[in-house]
Amino acid sequence: MAAGVIVPEHGARSFGLINAALGAGTVIGGLLAIRYKPERPLAAGAVAMLAYPLYPLGIVLGLPVWVPAAAQVVVGAGIGVWGVMWATSVQTQVPGEMLNPHPAPDRR
């Protein structure tokens, strides 16, 4: 949907820039999340995801391309933080036998 709005108005290059900004944001968020050790990782990840509406908001308001691109950096950072916090929570809070309840096949 975003491409259908951005490309006709600003061109494919702008859409590519906005998506690259998302990628940069996820890297930044992942790196930040590696260093940040919250007491409640899932809550921290959920708060980080509150940034998600910034991107569609920037599109529907018809703002200059740099605004949705900057929003995508923030959104990407939120996604990156969420991903690290989710993976950390699963690996530290869920027993291993629950993650893989089926024993490995006997390969004799």
Rank of each mutant, 00 (worst) to 15 (best):
V75P: 06
L31E: 12
P53C: 00
V7E: 02
Y52R: 07
V74A: 09
G76W: 07
G58R: 02
A69E: 03
R35T: 15
M49I: 11
W86V: 15
T92F: 06
L17S: 02
P38C: 09
V27Y: 03
I34Q: 15
R107C: 07
L63T: 10
F15H: 05
L57H: 00
A43N: 13
L54F: 01
G78N: 12
M85N: 10
A51L: 08
F15W: 12
A48H: 08
H102N: 13
L42R: 15
V5K: 08
G25K: 02
G16C: 11
S89M: 02
I34P: 04
A71Y: 13
K37A: 11
V47A: 03
L42M: 13
A104T: 11
Y36V: 06
T92V: 10
V60A: 03
T92K: 05
P38A: 13
Y52S: 13
A104P: 00
A2M: 11
P68D: 03
A87H: 09
A3R: 05
G62H: 02
S89Q: 09
G62F: 01
A70Y: 04
A43M: 14
P8T: 05
R40T: 04
P38K: 10
A104D: 06
Q93P: 00
V73N: 05
S89K: 04
A69L: 05
A20W: 01
V27L: 10
Y52T: 15
P64I: 07
R107M: 15
E9K: 15
A48Q: 12
W86C: 07
P53H: 01
P38S: 03
